[in-house]
Amino acid sequence: MKTLIIVVLSVVVLLALVFVWGATLPTTKSVSKTIQINAPVEIVWETMSDWKGQEKWRSDVKSVEILDERSFKEIPTNGPAVEFEIVRLETNKIIELKMSGPFKGHYLAEFSDNNGATTINISETIIQESIIGRILSRLFFDLEEFVAAYFGQLKLEVER
């Protein structure tokens, strides 16, 4: 019986420590990256703004569900679905989205033409208010790595 009490107390203390650690994690993660792609801005912008078409070239997206003309939902290969609301679309210049679901966030992609190539600046901010969500995000999701993978797949798609 004494051993059981020690094990239970140890587990409770460990869980409390993990919870306290999670409470100290920041609620906001942000990343900004710039990339140059050897393709015309029109092709890059069209590829990125074709929400349903991203199913074909993004390995992290299982499917995309168009909700209406201003919103869509990405169902990832791993993890919960994320809803996107289109805040601003300026053809060949800007894609701005608001994210909601298991977290909130903001996404901004700015495009510029560089003599037939395209420079894209992406800023993404994710807000995770839930302590459990922050812990899981810290353990299993690297925003920098996610954006780098997105850029890599985009480059492969439009430069081929």
Rank of each mutant, 00 (worst) to 15 (best):
I5C: 00
I5Q: 09
I5A: 12
I6F: 05
V7A: 13
V11F: 01
V12M: 08
V13L: 11
L15P: 04
A16V: 07
L17K: 02
L17R: 02
V18C: 08
F19Y: 10
A23V: 01
A23Q: 13
T24L: 08
L25W: 10
T27R: 14
K29I: 02
V31N: 14
S32D: 08
S32M: 08
I35P: 01
I37Y: 05
P40H: 13
E42C: 00
I43H: 12
I43P: 00
W45D: 06
W45S: 10
T47I: 02
T47D: 03
M48P: 06
D50L: 01
D50I: 00
W51A: 13
W51T: 04
K56V: 02
D60Y: 09
D60M: 03
S63E: 15
V64T: 15
V64A: 12
D68S: 14
R70L: 07
I75N: 15
T77I: 02
T77K: 11
G79P: 05
P80Y: 06
V82G: 06
V82C: 08
E83A: 09
F84Y: 15
E85A: 12
E85K: 14
L89T: 04
E90G: 03
T91M: 13
I94S: 05
E96Q: 14
G101L: 10
G101N: 06
F103L: 14
K104D: 15
H106W: 13
A109W: 09
D113T: 06
I122Y: 02
S123E: 11
S123T: 14
T125H: 01
S130Y: 05
S130H: 04
R134K: 15
R134W: 06
S137V: 00
S137M: 12
F140Q: 09
D142T: 06
F146L: 00
Y150T: 07
Q153R: 04
